[in-house]
Design a protein around this nucleic acid. Structure first.
Length: 810
RNA sequence: ACCCGGAUGGCGAAAUCGGUAGACGCGAGGGACUUAAAAUCCCUUAUCCGCGAGGGUGUGCGGGUUCGAGUCCCGCUCCGGGUACCA
């Protein structure tokens, strides 16, 4: 063997850069944005460009999206797959503070590093259309989005008790608080009162909820949004206050239990507390209200111990006419419902606990199937509302709970004491952040004109470069310390005025970025009308379920607002959404503190990007995630090596093997179906199985046996596929070659293995024609000694499933 | 507490409709090739009894439906994720 005959080994380090630069030269990944015949917008969740670089979780997510995008391209779509950077936000700012750098200088570096790593992984990204939320050419339009909401009356300012993180020195959205701790740094969150900008997302709750019924989204994601929106149907009931010209309105989902309402509870912040408090109770109530105010929002919500104070006043139960005491307690929240409840200790766990602590009367008004009106309640409230019937409830005795909810509400409505009401637990979206690293909210405060929106012609309100961007505990944004920026003339009257110094929430940046991509290079509009019409809504969105509520809900909301404003003609941004799973390592969660974080660069270096991509997809079902084990990657690499050498060894002489061809057509079918369903792990397994058939016993493969395999593997291992495609004599990209078509005739078997069972236990297998009759199969089976010996006497029954099994019951 | 997932060999996992449990891969053991090693290829690999042919058992636990259950139903246990005093 001469030197030149030595087979060239597969060296990803030379194959991968070759194709990456060729893709760039040829514009392979550039979408036909203006004249697509079959546009397909494939979106992946853009990353926050951390200083640590790309996380393996990012890569797992992107690879799955990329495979889907490449697959659709092979199917003949004009695929547009952009990517960008969610570069604003507290992450970047905190990191900059930690290392003593400036986010405005750090971010471009991180973006560059991410771009390098993403390029290395070989994604089919159209980099001409990138987006960076921290650049003025992007956030100019984020500010524009704010102005549209403002114009529609959906942005408003109010003083509110907010979650305050003493470490990050900023307000947090409820969604950013986990178990009373800051989602980012783990510090216990406190309560503060600040003037904040809010968006009226709660106005959209019914619409956001209703559309979930038809959206083609992962069921888990839709369920998470349903829970978050938290629709609750019930009634507002009005209780007159004895000896006062006042009444208290409560919200309840259990109007049927009105006869068991033995006291009322108001939130300590309830506006009527002062008026209802008697002189005798004044000191106790004031003390309790003050204590509640000082307590942070979180320990108030996490502590389940029931505390409260009697106001001294009594309300009249509109059903019984009885006078019942009015209490205040912090387990009633001002921000939900009416801030007041009727307490039914017999049938609500919290009211039961409270009544026990304060010795308030507990009455049974609902009886379970085994109970009667006087069955004692024991040590818990009876809360089953599906199997209960009313008792001790006057004319309503005997009604089922569900029916009684309506009947009692209607009855009280007739007495002007009730109104059917639907409540949502979705709160308005607080977008104010007392921070530096975000888009300034485009509002100017004028002593004469009030809060004036910055005219669109004056956008962007640029974020100035300041060196002292560290937040302090004043609760005021660092921007306020910069007079030259802070002081501006009023846009309306030109008198001296002041800028809003809060910046907006990062989630606003990401709530519309998908609209920007197709128009990323349009300086004059946020999104070009024609491009938007062509490409949106997004055909396929793939991302992590950690964004199931925040990002995805906000994006839907902003899209609805823009539709209502007449800017776009659709109200749901993502036609199809699929949530991918999580990657763990050797059975454990990855974390910096455990030191088990995977650095993608290391693996791509050792095994190649294609092997790494493919291994990530092989770990387990994409939508469930997988367990990364270092040893496993060698199996995938071996497969790629075999494909490589098969292509080198491929012959064009003779004809392909008939059995291999049959397997090939089955594989084309299976890989196509699995890839469409994101079942990447089984698609890869099918390709491996086919590879085994092709190379069984070191046989020399035929070129025609390999061509379709190269196309099948292309979405998974794009560099290797391109190289093999070229090796097999093509000059263009494999991604323009189309997806192979299977021949249905090749899938049909003439014979099949029929399983023979006796009483459900496998006793034999018969190799028989597919169309064998039951009688013929039975006759054949009875000739088998291993079957006959279990069949004593006449079979009681014979079950025959064509092509599958024969079960003889004796 | 509530709402979602999930539990299958030594390990990651497969099993489209209720029809051969364990595809594919890792690891392990054996063999071929080699002076040798690596690489490659072939075989074995759920478990128990048996020399073998063969047979029994087996998909977290306990019941049930069915000719037949990993898959469906009822009741639990454990693990992961989300929400959490939402009236």
């Amino acid at each position: 063997m001469s030197e030149t005959d030595v087979p060239t080994p597969y060296v990803p380090a030379s194959v991968e850069p070759k194709w990456q630069s060729r893709w760039a030269e040829r514009g392979t990944n550039t979408a036909k944005l203006d004249a697509p015949t079959k546009p397909f917008y494939a979106l992946m969740m853009f990353p926050y460009p951390s200083a640590e670089g790309l996380h393996v979780g990012n890569l797992f997510a992107f690879t799955g999206s990329d495979i889907s995008a490449r697959f659709h391209r092979l199917l003949g779509h004009d695929v547009f797959q952009p990517l960008g950077f969610d570069a604003f936000g507290i992450h970047s700012e905190n990191y900059a503070l930690k290392v003593g750098a400036h986010p405005m200088e750090l971010t471009p570096k991180n973006v560059a590093n991410f771009t390098r790593q993403l390029g290395r992984a070989g994604f089919m990204v159209d980099w001409n259309q990138k987006v960076d939320t921290s650049r003025a050419d992007y956030y100019k339009w984020t500010q524009w989005v704010f102005l549209q909401l403002h114009k529609q009356g959906l942005a408003y300012k109010k003083a509110a008790a907010v979650n305050w993180c003493p470490t990050d020195k900023t307000v947090l959205a409820n969604e950013q608080v986990e178990n009373g701790l800051c989602e980012r740094c783990g510090t216990a969150v406190e309560q503060r009162f600040l003037e904040q900008w809010f968006f009226r997302i709660s106005d959209y709750a019914p619409r956001l909820l209703a559309n979930l019924d038809w959206l083609d989204w992962s069921p888990v994601t839709r369920q998470a949004q349903r829970n978050w929106i938290g629709k609750s149907e019930g009634a507002e009931l009005t209780f007159d206050i004895a000896a006062h010209d006042a009444s208290v309105t409560v919200f309840t989902t259990r109007a049927d239990t009105i006869y068991g309402a033995t006291y009322l509870v108001l939130a300590p912040e309830h506006p009527l507390v002062g008026a209802l408090t008697t002189d005798a109770q004044r000191d106790a109530v004031t003390q309790y209200v003050d204590a509640t105010k000082k307590q942070d929002l979180i320990s108030r919500k996490s502590s389940k111990e029931k505390t409260g104070v009697f106001t001294g006043s009594y309300a009249v139960n509109p059903a019984t006419g009885a006078q019942i005491p009015v209490w205040i307690a912090d387990y009633v929240l001002m921000e939900y419902g009416t801030g007041a409840i009727m307490a039914v200790p017999g049938h609500d766990e919290r009211d039961f606990e409270f009544a026990q602590v304060f010795n308030l009367p507990i009455v049974r008004v609902v009886a379970g199937p085994d109970d009667h009106a006087d069955t004692p309640l024991g040590d818990a409230a009876f809360t089953d509302d599906d199997h209960g019937r009313l008792v001790n409830s006057g004319q309503f005795d005997g009604l089922a709970v569900q029916e009684a909810k309506r009947t009692v509400t209607t009855w009280l409505e007739g007495k002007q004491h009730a109104k059917a009401v639907t409540n949502y637990r979705l709160h308005d979206w607080c977008i104010s952040r007392q921070r530096y690293w975000g888009p300034p909210i485009p509002i100017i405060y004028c002593d004469d004109c009030g809060a004036v929106p910055v005219p669109e012609s004056q956008l962007p309100v640029e974020l100035p470069f300041i060196s002292d961007f560290k937040p302090d505990d004043s609760g005021i944004s660092p921007l306020a310390r910069h007079e030259e920026w802070y002081r501006v003339p009023c846009p309306t009257c030109s008198k001296p005025a002041r800028r809003e110094t809060d910046v907006s929430d990062t989630f606003l940046d990401s709530a519309w970025y998908f609209l920007r991509y197709p128009s990323a290079n349009h300086a004059d509009v946020p999104f070009d009308a024609a491009r938007t019409k062509t490409w949106l809504p997004v055909n396929s969105y793939i991302g992590g379920n950690e964004h199931a509520v925040l990002h995805l809900l906000y994006s839907r909301f902003i899209t609805m607002v823009l539709k209502d404003g007449g800017f776009i003609d659709f109200e749901e941004p993502f036609t199809r959404f699929r949530a991918h799973g999580m990657i763990i390592r050797e059975g454990a969660k990855m974390s910096k503190s455990k030191g088990n974080v995977i650095n993608p660069d290391v693996y791509m270096e050792e095994w190649g990007a294609d092997a790494f991509r493919m291994y990530l997809m092989f770990l387990g079902p994409y939508e469930e995630g997988g367990d990364f084990r270092d040893q496993g990657i060698s199996g995938v690499r071996r497969f790629l090596d075999r494909l490589w050498s098969s292509v080198r060894d491929a012959s064009t002489e003779g004809a392909p093997d008939a059995e291999v061809l049959r397997k090939m057509h089955r594989t084309i079918k299976k890989v196509g179906e699995d890839t469409a369903n994101l079942a990447y792990n089984t698609a890869i397994a099918a390709m491996m199985e086919y590879m085994n058939a092709v190379r069984r016993g070191e046989r020399a493969p035929h070129r025609d046996e390999l061509l379709p395999l190269v196309q099948l593997v292309a979405p998974f291992a794009p560099h290797l596929a391109e190289e093999c495609w070229e090796q097999l004599g093509h000059s263009g990209s494999v991604f323009d070659a189309g997806w192979p078509v299977f021949d249905a005739a090749m899938l049909v078997d003439n014979t099949v293995d029929l399983v023979v069972q006796v009483n459900g236990k496998v006793r034999s297998k018969l190799h028989v024609p597919v169309d064998i009759t039951q009688d013929a199969a039975l006759a054949l089976a009875m000739q088998e000694e291993g079957v006959a010996k279990f069949v004593t006497g006449e079979p009681k029954k014979v079950i025959f499933v064509p092509k599958r099994l024969l079960n003889i019951v004796v």
